[in-house]
Structures are given as C-alpha cells and as structure tokens.
C-alpha cells in the first residue's frame, strides 16, 4: 500500500515538475542544430515564475469564459495526466473505459481554450481557433485506432492495462501493428501540441500561428497557466507514445522511473530534431499529413487480426 502511494507520489511529481523541462530540451536541441548555444534548459521555469508575478490586461469584450480557458485547460490536462500510466506503473486513476475519458477530457480543455479565444472577438484568434478545432478533430481517429489496437493486443480496457506490461509482450506478436501506432501517434503528438511541421511555436506572425495566436490576449498569470498547460499536454502525449515505443513494464519499478525520465528527455530531443531539420508545412498540406497518420493507424487493426 505504501509502495503504491509512493509511486502515485512520484507520478504526481513527474506530472507537475517535468513538463517545462521538456520544452527547455526542445528549445536547446533546436538551437544546437542551428549552431547556436540556445537558452538554458531551465529557462521555461524562469519564464513561468516571471509570468505568474506579472499583472494582467484583459480585453473589454471578454467574459468569464476568457478566464475559464486557461483554468479548464489546465484542469483537464491534469486529469489526463493522472489517467495515463508513466513508466509502466499503474496510473493514479484507472478504470475500464478510462481511455475515452482521457481523449474527451483533453477535448473539453480544447473547447474552452477555443471559446476563450473567440471571446476576445479578434480575427487572428478566431483564425487560430478554427485551425486548432479542425486539426484536432482530424487527429482524433488516429488516437482511437491506436487505442483499440492496444486494447486488443493487451486484452484490457483501461489505459493502465493497455500501456502496461502487456505492451512489451505484444511487440513480439504484433510488432507491425504497434509500429504503425507509434508512428501515427508521434504525428498526433506533433499536431496536438502545435509543433513543427504543423505549427511553429516560435513564429512571430499572427497570421501563420495556430496555438500561439489562440492565446494572444492572455497575459501575466493567465498566459503562464496556458504555457504550463501546453507543456503538460506535451508531456502527456509523450508518455503515451513512450508507453508503446519503449515499454518499461516488468522492470524494477524504481529503475523504470529513471528510464522513463531519460526516455522523456530523449523524446523531447527527438521533437527538437524534427523542428531543427524540417520546415513547417504549408497550411493546406497539414490535413494531408493528419489523414496519412490516420490511414497508418487504421492499418493497426488489420495487422493485428490478419
């Protein structure tokens, strides 16, 4: 019982403390590939601390929905983070069918983020909102194809079972299906977290942004929470991909935590490499990539049942 409580505690520490570090690693990797030294790895923590201390300005048109955007976004991502198993350990919250809650809780956060953007009445933010809503809707089928593949491979209906020790065994029997899920989910990770090639988080032109433009009018602590929530979402999707790509179930539990931390940093570096070597796609090409990811994921069940 105490061991379980300790693992839950470690899970919480990872979820709350690690996300900004991933953002730092991505930025650093990208800078190194571009031949620069880049910001310190811990820079995102300093940025968050600074934003939380600052005052805020809000638009005259806004209502309570504007504040609800970052609040609901953070709460739902936190719930998703408590549902997803880390390093092969059982997640703090786990029940049959929790994978649907995982996907739909993130959907609720997106709903309010978009509503908050539309609350400002800005054309830029409306444009970003439309893109975010469209692309995330297109990414949804890939996620569910993958989840059903894992459900069949593991015989379980909860995320902790699907992404638990059974995955390691499944690589032997259903490697092709799992490989297609990993590739497809990595694309979903890039899309859902607005990374290159879908969106450039470092861009400075409102017309071309997706996620950054959604939160143009959020400032101070609100902006800090938005950034924190976005980093946590990246962490959650990273954990999802890693659970399939690098299954750690069955290892020594404490070793698994260490390996999970290393794998997360490695995944962040991989995202950084993608950002370093690729340009962002032209907007009309984005849906094609998402549909390709979905088709790839759709092969999963076919590989599995043969």
């Amino acid at each position: 019982m105490t061991v379980r409580a300790a693992h839950v505690l470690v899970h919480l520490v990872f979820v709350l403390a690690m996300p900004p570090l991933l953002v730092g690693v991505i930025a650093r990797t990208k800078a190194l590939l571009a031949g620069r030294r880049g910001p310190p790895l811990l820079q995102p923590y300093h940025d968050l601390a600074k934003l939380l201390r600052k005052g805020m300005v809000r638009s005259r048109t806004t209502t309570w929905v504007f504040v609800a955007g970052p609040a609901v976004g953070l709460v739902t991502t936190l719930l998703a983070a408590l549902l997803v198993p880390l390093g092969g350990h059982r997640a703090p919250i786990s029940f049959e069918g929790d994978f649907v809650l995982f996907a739909y809780a993130l959907g609720l956060g997106r709903f309010f983020t978009i509503a908050a953007a539309l609350d400002t009445g800005s054309a830029f933010e409306g444009m970003g909102a439309a893109r975010e809503a469209t692309f995330s809707a297109l990414a949804e089928p890939s996620l569910f194809f993958g989840l059903l593949v894992l459900g069949r491979a593991s015989g379980s209906a909860s995320l902790s079972g699907m992404l638990g020790p059974a995955v390691g065994a499944a690589w032997g029997t259903a490697g092709a299906a799992l490989a297609s899920v990993v590739v497809s989910w990595f694309v979903v990770l890039l899309a859902e977290n607005s990374r290159i090639p879908f969106d450039d988080p470092a861009t400075h032109l409102e017309l071309t942004m997706i996620h950054e433009v959604l939160v143009l009018d959020h400032s101070g602590p609100l902006l800090g929470l938005v950034h924190y929530g976005a980093a946590m979402k990246l962490f959650v999707f990273g954990a999802l991909v890693l659970a399939v790509a690098a299954p750690l179930g069955g290892l020594d539990p404490w070793l698994a935590w260490a390996l999970f931390a290393a794998a997360s940093l490695g995944l962040a570096a991989a995202v950084g490499v993608v950002e370093g070597v690729m340009a962002r796609l032209r907007l009309p090409k984005v849906p094609s990539l998402l549909v390709a990811a979905c088709v790839l994921a759709a092969f999963g069940p076919l590989f599995l049942v043969r």
Binding site: G55, M56, V57, R58, S59, R60, T61, W64, V67, A68, P70, A71, V72, L74, V75, T120, G121, S122, F124, L216, D217, G220, P221, L222, L225
Partner: peptide, 18 residues
C-alpha cells in the same frame, strides 16, 4: 479553478483586443 482564477483576475486592467 474557474472561480479561483476569476477571483485572481478581478482587478485586471481592461483594454482593446490585440
């Protein structure tokens, strides 16, 4: 979370949308 954040944001300065 919404009420807490709303309480924190109650004194925010109001201005035009960017």
């Amino acid at each position: 979370a919404v009420s807490l954040l709303g309480w924190c944001a109650r004194g925010a300065r109001e201005d035009e949308t960017w």
